[in-house]
Structure formats: structure tokens, C-alpha cells
Design a protein around this nucleic acid. Structure first.
Length: 613
RNA sequence: GGUCCCAUAGCUCAGCUGGAUAGAGCAGCUCACUUCUAAUGAGCAGGCCUCAGGUUCGAAUCCUGAUGGGAUCACCA
């Protein structure tokens, strides 16, 4: 039992013996004492006024006295209004540090034999990854790390959306305008290369559309279908999709290609494989630069027809209904309307795919929980899918969770591909590393390092800045990504935390070796030292919280607070000039534990620590 | 129209199951480097926690309603 649970339990029995009021220990209001008061933890005594029939101050006195004699580590108390401030024996904190020092896995839970699957990234194979994907990827990776730290076996998967009309557009454009160009021949990274043809298709399509607007056919369509008071420009702007489906030659050809793809046409399939191969190779490089990996890739081209069994079962159990070939269900109980699962031509939908994929993955891994890291614009979709699986009484249905994160906006507003404001993932990574490099060179602190090591340090700092900037924001909130602030290294930033770590390393380099297992006789605990131990003490709870809330930002905040406490300590107390040998040994040990804890908590965010910077 | 999310300092964000005078960072103004790396530390200034009710000894936090912003409710993925 840790000290907090101990105090809570003692307060509970104290209230029971003093006033005869039954109080569960979990209900005891216990919080860290505010800085301006004397003490470590504070008990709020207002809740006991009724049973005690006394003033809060008197209750505080009663309980304070009771705890001094009946609770092990409490050495002093004071009462202010309804607040009982308790001081814990310094030896408790120094002993705690000794314990933590010899625990390499401090904060992490032992393996519990349970399995969680995290699905993240899930890109389309028609264009490169962008800033939105980066938030997704960082959240997915961090969640996976957090669950591992919480004792779970985590399977990281990605579902690659590699089929459909979008990829056919790129294919068509490449076939028609590519002249056999390849990523190799052009020197363009595969995903960007294919993206280029996706854009090419679009510009050609727009050209075609504009020409068509001057034809007699277009005029008669406008006359027949325009809404009241709708001028030509507005009409044709709104009509674009219909044009693609009904009149466009390029649209017709792209759709034809999709039909051929579905019919397994060898030529189309070969081209498709070639271009997807280029894209996937490009994605791999991006993932590598971000330091993330996957255990298993699912491809939509393999899964899009799944779900038939579940649908059969649903029809039999009258969870799903049939109209001709169309299969649907009613979701009004969760605030939605009818959901189509198979279209009236009998073909699959996103919903049927997701039903089938859920089942397939359960068959593959039997994970008790699956976390889908997907943007919050798909909240309703997943509510629908999960609801249907619940109605089908699938054993895994209750373990499905949609980690819905908010959009990433720029200071100028939303990213819009049409306006070219989408921030490319590879560009961004290169930029943050470049900025870190410029900073570091100007500071000149690591110029003596071997070149390769320097580059590695720039990379760690740049990515540290970027990742922390994104992960420090609560995942479910929409966030503003300011490119200038994302490369900042001062204040509440990744590099600030890395710098605290670098200070720890610097001290360790210049000090005599210490043995973490040798206990130190030090009792004159200074305020900044106690502050640090208190902070370190909160690490396990931070991990638990982050796991429970599906929220890495908890660990970002923890890391920052710990770094801040260390910087304060470092500033106030010169470790290498300590007043005694034992004081120095204690501080070196404290410093080493801080370093380890910072590295550990940042690792859960996917951020690496440089040794120097 | 239905459902859901968000609203805290000029800006970007924290505020755990309700608890003391609402916190950080950035930007602004001061101060501290012959010191274990100043990518640091200390200070000043900056708030009707969107609004109105309610519950409570006590509300930024819980409930209801309003306002503003966003998402979604497809035989798209």
C-alpha cells in the first residue's frame, strides 16, 4: 500500500473511531498541499461536520492528533479552516527514493497476460501522409507504449486503404500522362510520386469539366437541374461530383478501371500492385523517420468483401433486415437513422467492411480490447459499427473503443488540399530537424561530437519538439498547429524536458560513479529535493491515468512538471559542491532517478533523449 | 431537425473522482551566468473560468437551459 492509500485508510478509521461515521477510504479527500502552506498532503474535513457536530477546525485538530499517534509516517500537522495539512517524515521520502532507485522498471506494471490491439495511421494509398496523419500516428504509437507499460501485450496494426476510386484516378493519370516515369527515374519518393499523379488527374479533370461547361449538353443540364436563383457558377460548382459520375470521360475511365480491378483484370491488377508498392515504400520511410512500426498490416483489398458471415447471422437473428439485395438496420436508439450495410446491388460498404475486419482481427489475435485511432469525424460511424456488433452479441464487441482525436488546424484555419495548405509529413519532419540543427549549431555546445552523433542529436531534438507539441494537447480536442511554436525549444516544450535530462547526464559524467543499491544516510531533505521525490512518486499514477483516459497528454504534463522540478533543484543546489559526501551521494542518486524517469515517460510518448545538446 | 464534442490570461494549453487566493508556456516588462551547459532560474503584469439558473458547507469542475464554434446523421471511404 502506498502512502496515500495508507493515509486515506487511517483517516477513515479515525473518523470511524472519533465520530462513529462509516467512511470508505476512497471517499477521503486527499490532495497535495498547496505550496503556500506547511505540509505534504491535505485532508479536507468538511465532509465530517455532520457526524462530528463540531466546527471544521476542531475536527482537523481531532484528526491531526489521531493521525500523529495512529498513522506511521505522519510527523506533524496544522489546521487551516477545514483543511488538515499533514507532514510526512522526511525519512519516508528518502527511503522511497532508495526503493525506486533499485527498481529499473519503476512506474511500469508487470505483464498481465492480456492483449490489446491498437489500430492507427490507416492511410489511403493515393497520396503522401500529412500533418493529420502525424497526430494519428503519434497518438497510436504512444497509446501502444502506454498500454505496454500498463502490463498489456499490444498488437499494433494498420489498415491500408489500398483500393477504390481514388487509387484508380492516380493509376489512370499515370497510365495516360506518365510516359513510364517511375520514382527511381524521377528521384521522387514513391508516395509523393503517386500523389503527383493523383493531383494530375484532378487538374485534367477540372480542365475537362470547364470545357464541358461550354457545351450544349451542359447548358441543357443546367437548365433542367438548376435550383431557383442559382447562377451557372454556383450550379457547376455543386454539380462536380455528378458530372464525374455521369458525363466525364476521365470519370468514366476511372470507374471502368475500378470495375476491371474488381473483376481481377490482370493488367489493371499489375499496375495497381506496382503503384501501391511505390506508395507503401514511401510510407515506410515516413514511419521510419517518425520511429514507429507495426506488427501487422491489413489491406482493404483483402478485407473489403468480408462481413458476409456476420450479415447472414444478423439476418437470421433479425438484427439486420433485407430489401431486395440491400441490407440495413435501424440505429435510432443511438440517435442515428437507417444504416445501409450492403447496397441494393449487393456490394459492400464501409460498414460491412468494418464488421468483417473486426471479426477477422478477433480471429487472428483474440485481443480483449481494440483501440481504433481514427479522427472524430467518424464518431457516428464507429458508434454504428460497435452497436451492430453488440446486437450480434459478438464476444469482442464490448472491448472496441474509438479513440477519436480532433482535427489539426493551422493558425490560418483548416488545412485544405484544394488551397494547398496541407502540411506534408515528410516536409514537416525535415523542417523540425533542420530547425533543431540550426539552433544547436548556433549554440555550439556539441560541435566536438562525431558528425553522425550530431545528426542523431539534431533528429532527437527536432522530433522531440514536434512530437511533444502535438502530444501535449488532450487527444480528443481539436488543436492548432503553429509551425513556429512547434520548433520552439524553451518553455513547455520537448527540448526543455530533454535539456533537464541532459543536465542529469552532465552531472553524472562529472561526478564519481554511484551505486544505486548502496543506501545513503541523508535526512536533511531540502524543499526542491522533496518536491522532486514527490513528483517521481506520481509517475505510476500518471501511467495508470493515461491508460485509463486513453490520453498521452497526461504523460506529457507529467514529464514537463518533473523536468521543471529538476531545473529548479539544479538551479538552487549545486550537486557537485554539496556540503557533505552523503548529501552529494543522495543528490546524484536523485538525479539519476530523475533521468531514468524522464527518459521512461518521454519514451511512452515516442520521444528519445539526447545525452548532450 | 436529431445526436455528439468544444468554450479558462492577448495567444497556445493544464486544471484528477467538487475543496484553500484558478495554473503553466509564449508574447510584454524586470532581475540573475568567473558557477554541475542560462535550451535555465526568480519576479512583475495579465482572469465576470461564454452567459443564466440549480444541487452543495463549498462549483472552472456536477445538473438544466441559452449563446457562439465544430463534427455527424449517405446505397462515400
Amino acid at each position: 500500500m502506498n502512502i496515500l492509500a495508507q493515509i486515506a485508510a487511517d483517516v477513515a478509521t479515525g473518523v470511524q473511531t472519533l465520530y462513529g461515521q462509516e467512511t470508505p477510504a476512497e471517499k477521503v479527500a486527499l490532495s497535495p498541499t498547496r505550496k503556500e502552506f506547511e505540509g505534504d498532503y491535505t485532508v479536507v474535513v468538511f465532509p465530517y461536520t455532520k457526524a462530528a457536530k463540531k466546527k471544521p477546525v476542531d475536527i482537523g485538530e481531532d484528526l491531526g492528533k489521531y493521525l500523529i499517534t495512529n498513522s506511521t509516517n505522519i510527523v506533524a500537522y496544522n489546521v487551516i479552516n477545514g483543511f488538515l495539512n499533514l507532514s510526512i517524515a522526511p525519512s519516508y521520502w528518502t527511503n522511497l527514493l532508495e526503493e525506486i532507485a533499485v527498481n529499473e522498471n519503476y512506474g511500469k506494471k508487470p505483464a498481465n497476460g492480456r492483449k490489446i490491439m491498437v489500430e492507427y495511421s490507416s492511410p489511403n494509398t493515393n497520396k503522401p501522409l500529412h500533418l493529420g496523419h502525424i497526430r494519428n500516428i503519434l497518438l497510436g504509437w504512444s497509446s501502444a507504449k502506454i498500454y505496454e507499460a500498463a502490463g498489456y501485450e499490444v498488437i499494433k496494426v494498420q489498415i491500408v486503404n489500398d483500393r477504390g476510386i481514388a487509387i484508380c484516378r492516380s493509376m489512370l493519370a499515370w497510365e495516360r500522362f506518365g510516359n513510364g516515369e517511375t520514382p527511381e527515374s524521377s528521384g521522387i519518393k514513391g508516395d509523393h510520386f503517386v500523389g503527383k499523379y493523383y493531383v494530375k488527374f484532378n487538374t485534367e479533370f477540372v480542365k475537362e469539366y470547364e470545357e464541358w461547361q461550354h457545351t450544349e449538353e451542359a447548358k441543357s443540364v443546367y437548365a433542367a437541374k438548376k435550383k431557383e436563383n442559382q447562377d451557372e457558377t454556383a450550379f457547376f460548382k455543386a454539380y462536380k461530383n455528378d458530372y464525374f459520375n455521369e458525363y466525364s470521360f476521365l470519370g468514366r475511365d476511372a470507374k471502368e478501371m475500378l470495375v476491371k480491378w474488381e473483376a481481377n483484370d490482370p493488367e489493371v491488377r499489375t499496375l495497381w500492385k506496382k503503384m501501391n508498392g511505390w506508395v507503401l515504400a514511401g510510407f515506410d520511410k515516413t514511419y521510419e523517420s517518425l520511429g514507429v512500426v507495426f506488427d501487422k498490416l491489413y489491406f482493404e483489398s483483402d478485407t473489403y468483401l468480408l462481413g458476409k458471415e456476420l450479415i447472414e447471422k444478423g439476418l437470421k437473428e433479425e438484427v439486420l433486415f433485407k430489401d431486395g439485395k440491400r441490407v440495413w438496420t435501424d440505429l435510432s436508439n443511438i440517435g442515428m437513422q437507417q444504416k445501409t450495410i450492403l447496397k441494393s446491388d449487393g456490394t459492400s460498404t464501409y460498414t460491412s467492411q468494418d464488421l468483417g475486419t473486426a471479426q477477422m482481427r478477433y480471429n487472428d489475435y483474440q485481443a480483449e480490447r481494440v483501440i481504433y485511432v481514427v479522427g472524430d469525424e467518424q464518431i457516428s460511424h464507429f458508434q454504428g459499427v460497435f452497436e451492430i456488433l453488440k446486437r450480434l452479441k459478438e464476444p469482442y464487441a464490448d472491448g472496441l473503443y474509438h479513440l477519436a482525436y480532433g482535427m489539426v488546424d493551422l493558425p490560418t484555419g483548416r488545412m485544405k488540399s484544394r488551397e494547398g495548405t496541407v502540411v506534408d509529413a515528410d516536409d514537416l519532419v525535415a523542417e523540425v530537424i533542420g530547425a533543431a540543427k540550426a539552433d544547436a549549431i548556433e549554440r555550439g555546445e556539441i560541435v566536438d561530437m562525431p558528425k553522425a552523433e550530431q545528426e542523431d542529436t539534431f533528429r532527437k531534438i527536432g522530433l522531440g519538439a514536434l512530437k511533444y507539441f502535438i502530444l501535449k494537447v488532450n487527444s480528443k480536442k481539436r488543436m492548432v498547429f503553429n509551425p513556429e511554436e512547434s520548433v520552439e525549444t524553451q518553455g513547455n516544450t520537448g527540448p526543455y524536458i530533454q535539456y533537464a535530462y541532459v543536465r542529469c547526464s552532465g552531472v553524472a559524467r562529472k561526478a564519481p560513479e554511484i551505486n544505486m543499491a548502496t543506501s545513503v544516510d541523508y535526512t536533511d531533505l531540502q524543499a526542491p529535493e522533496k518536491e522532486l521525490i514527490l513528483k517521481i512518486f506520481q509517475y505510476p499514477a500518471a501511467i495508470e491515468d493515461a491508460a485509463k483516459e486513453y490520453d498521452p497528454s497526461v504523460l506529457a504534463a507529467f514529464s514537463y512538471d518533473l523536468a521543471r522540478a529538476y531545473n529548479k533543484f539544479y538551479h538552487d543546489i549545486n550537486i557537485l559542491k554539496s556540503e557533505s559526501e552523503s548529501a552529494m551521494a543522495f543528490r546524484l542518486k536523485l538525479s539519476a532517478v530523475v533521468a531514468r524517469t524522464l527518459a521512461s515517460s518521454m519514451d511512452l510518448l515516442g520521444i528519445e533523449m539526447p545525452a548532450r545538446m
